[in-house]
Simulated scan of single mutants.
Amino acid sequence: MTSPPEAAAPPDHYTGEVYVTPRHLAGTTGTGDAGLRPALDAGWETSDDDLGNFCIAAPDHRIRIGYLPEGDDDALWKIAAYEQHSFAAPRWAAAFSDSCPDEVVAAFTTGLVPLHDTDGNAFLRGGIGYRRDASPVLAPLLDAGWTVDERHWLVEVRSPDALAGAWYDRRTLDPDRELTSNATRWGIWGGKTRGRWYAVFSSHTPTPLITATAAAVADPAPVVRWAGGLSTITRRHATITRVRPPAPTPLELARAHRPSPVLRTVTVPRWSTSTPSARLPGPSRPPARR
Rank of each mutant, 00 (worst) to 15 (best):
G191I: 10
K192A: 15
K192T: 14
T193A: 14
R194Q: 14
R196D: 08
W197F: 15
A199K: 04
A199N: 04
V200Q: 10
V200L: 06
F201T: 08
S202V: 07
S203N: 09
S203Y: 02
S203T: 13
S203K: 10
T205G: 01
P206T: 01
T207I: 01
P208M: 03
P208G: 03
P208F: 01
L209M: 08
L209V: 00
L209F: 03
L209Y: 01
I210P: 01
I210T: 04
I210G: 05
T211A: 13
T211G: 08
A212C: 00
A212P: 03
T213C: 09
A214C: 15
A214M: 05
A214I: 00
A215E: 08
A216V: 06
A216I: 05
V217Q: 04
V217K: 03
A218F: 01
D219T: 09
P220A: 04
P220F: 03
A221H: 09
A221Q: 10
A221M: 07
A221K: 09
P222N: 05
P222G: 01
V223C: 06
V223W: 01
V223A: 06
V224Q: 11
R225N: 01
W226E: 15
G228W: 04
G228K: 00
G228H: 00
G229D: 08
G229M: 04
G229L: 01
G229K: 05
G229E: 07
L230N: 04
L230R: 01
T232D: 14
T232E: 14
I233F: 01
R235T: 10
R236L: 11
H237T: 04
A238P: 06
T239Q: 13
T239N: 07
I240Y: 06
I240V: 13
T241K: 03
T241V: 06
T241M: 14
R242C: 08
R242E: 13
V243W: 11
R244N: 12
P245L: 07
P246T: 12
P246V: 10
A247I: 09
A247L: 14
A247P: 06
P248G: 07
P248N: 08
P248M: 05
P248K: 09
P248E: 07
T249K: 08
P250Q: 09
P250V: 06
L251E: 15
L251C: 07
E252P: 01
L253V: 12
A254I: 11
A254G: 11
A256N: 14
R258L: 13
S260C: 11
P261M: 05
P261H: 08
V262D: 14
V262E: 15
L263A: 12
R264M: 11
R264H: 14
R264S: 11
T265D: 14
V266P: 09
T267R: 14
P269G: 07
P269F: 05
P269I: 07
S272I: 07
T273S: 14
T273R: 15
T273W: 06
T273Y: 05
T273L: 11
S274F: 10
T275V: 13
T275M: 09
T275H: 12
P276C: 06
P276R: 05
P276K: 02
S277D: 13
S277C: 08
S277R: 15
A278T: 11
A278H: 09
A278L: 10
A278P: 02
R279Y: 00
L280Y: 01
L280A: 04
L280H: 04
P281D: 06
G282N: 03
G282S: 06
G282E: 02
G282C: 03
G282D: 03
